[in-house]
Design a protein around this nucleic acid. Structure first.
Lengths: 303, 303
DNA sequence: TGAGCGGATGAATTTAATTCATCCGGGCTG
DNA sequence: CAGCCCGGATGAATTAAATTCATCCGCTCA
């Protein structure tokens, strides 16, 4: 039967463009370039022999035929999406269980997961946040985010991001009578310590060439989350790590008073057993993670 | 909002394969190789994580999930086809859109359409195959082929052909250790049932004077295409209907073991709204259909 | 038991989709 | 008013997907 139907890519491009009345925005939504949308819609129009959009000086507008076709196409894609979701196995390949540190989960992954869910609504991400290293043997954990040198036998390791360490504190500490302005001012500040990273202050102070400040003063916290919360509350100065403090820096809860960063040896990796590393939903997550912008990259001096 | 949708090629391959219960036949219908269908359906199954077809020794069968997904996909593609036809320019006098049952389309009209195209190369025939009764209100459907008594108000009805019902099976069942030779042998055979025609076996057995065979044994299928595919695969004996089994009888995929046919009350009609029933291209199609030889007419006893 | 059928599979090829680089036109701004 | 953004268009190049080809496999039937 010769029932000529447009390709899926063209229908989706048209649906998005009609919804947003913008090829550029449609491209962003579908993770394509505007050029791709333009090509698809052009070829759809050619194939139909019908103009779907007016492109005039005042931008884009649906034609009457385009509006009508949009209603139909939208309904059809909606129905197809539901049917396909129904046909899809529930808890199989569409659920990815990831193990990672609680701090990384809370301060880095979870804020981004919202966007991932919008991008891949059919992929369910389960987080197992733990300070213990993930055990892949049970078959429960699909992947983990680990910090290290990427040398874990039997696991596929894909690089995610580097780590930079530098003092962070509440913005309140950089103003007032005795503001933090140079690393030397740390002599008068309370240093907040992370029990999981003993000696981290020594490392940074040494790299910054500050030998005369005692690094062993101040309270010790059990986890990064606690150290950073204390710092945000103005209790003192913490040694922040880039992926973890990214959102706090972005929202202004924390500031970086000096600009001298110390690159950590090693970096973050997405690791998964070789055998299951290529399952589609994990591959989607990996690709998505890797295309995330590294907004926290050092703007200033790297030590 | 992003949702993962299968490619059009995969959907069409699946639709055709599900309708015909055969990759090879689907390939022929779509002008592709069986390999292409196999690849597409395989990748669709992989993507869904759902098995859509049982492939066992006795040939192809839809799984429950496959049957459900087929219903959805078929509806969606049909709606898309109508919407696209509506959006398309030049649905003029040289295009005729016909609605008919999928089984009649696949097993009767499509095989003949080739010849029609040669006779009338300028007339484009669009098929909308659906189990729903055609709705002429939208202006999309020009005509339909319906089975019934020809009494549809407001529609011009031209008779096409009668229907005769009789057992059919794979030629394999008429040979071997226990061949089907007389209707009494049906006692030992598996009767294949069509959910759309409950009681059809009772009717035929009663007319044939076989009171002592229980008609309610055997699997029930959703559609004529499935029943006939199962029969052709040697699964059992189906109750065939003349226009539908014509090509299978001609190619030898099915045989008629007994020769006793039951004439159905009612017949097939070409129906079209009175207002547009005489448009030239539809008139050409009507004339051509009516001059088609009725190659399946009963050669033997009519009950 | 070996020929034939329908489907599966992997590599090669063909075809479609997407990007890249560039262009165009109009409105906005300095 | 010139220059410059901005969004879209366009054609060639690139990348990705669909399809074919060649072959294999398991089963059935002479």
């Amino acid at each position: 039967m010769y029932r000529k139907l447009p390709p899926m890519a063209a229908l989706r491009a048209f649906e998005a463009a009609a919804q947003l009345v913008s090829f550029k925005a449609a491209a962003a939504q579908l993770h394509r370039t505007p050029s791709a949308i333009s090509h698809q819609i052009r070829s759809l129009e050619d194939e139909l022999g019908t103009v779907l959009f007016h492109r005039d000086a005042h931008g884009l507008r649906l034609t009457d035929a385009g509006r009508e076709y949009y209603r139909d196409v939208h309904g059809v894609l909606e129905a197809l999406g539901e049917a396909t979701a129904r046909a899809r196995q529930g808890h199989g390949e569409d659920t990815v269980t990831i193990s990672l540190f609680p701090s990384l989960a809370v301060r880095w992954l979870i804020p981004r997961l919202q966007a991932f869910r919008e991008r891949w609504p059919d992929i369910e991400i389960e987080l197992v946040s733990s300070v213990r290293r993930a055990d892949f043997d049970g078959g429960v954990i699909d992947a983990a985010i680990r910090f290290g040198d990427g040398d874990w036998p039997g696991l596929r390791c894909d690089p995610l991001m580097i780590e930079e360490r530098f003092p962070v504190c509440s913005p309140a500490l950089t103003t007032g009578t005795r503001p933090l302005e140079t690393p030397d001012d740390l002599a008068h500040a309370i240093l907040l310590h992370n029990g999981a990273h003993p000696g981290e202050w020594d490392d940074w102070l040494a790299a910054a060439g500050i030998g005369h400040i005692a690094a062993d003063r101040g309270p010790v916290f059990d986890a990064s989350n606690e150290v950073l919360a204390a710092a945000a509350n103005g209790m003192g100065v913490a040694l922040g790590r880039t992926p973890l403090v990214e959102s706090d820096l972005a929202t202004g809860r924390l500031v970086e008073p000096f600009g001298q960063r110390l690159r950590s040896p090693g970096q973050y990796w997405l690791v998964a057993p070789e055998a299951t590393a290529d399952q589609p939903s994990l591959a989607a997550l990996r690709a998505w993670l890797q295309e995330q912008p590294v907004s926290f990259a050092s703007q200033s001096g790297l030590l």
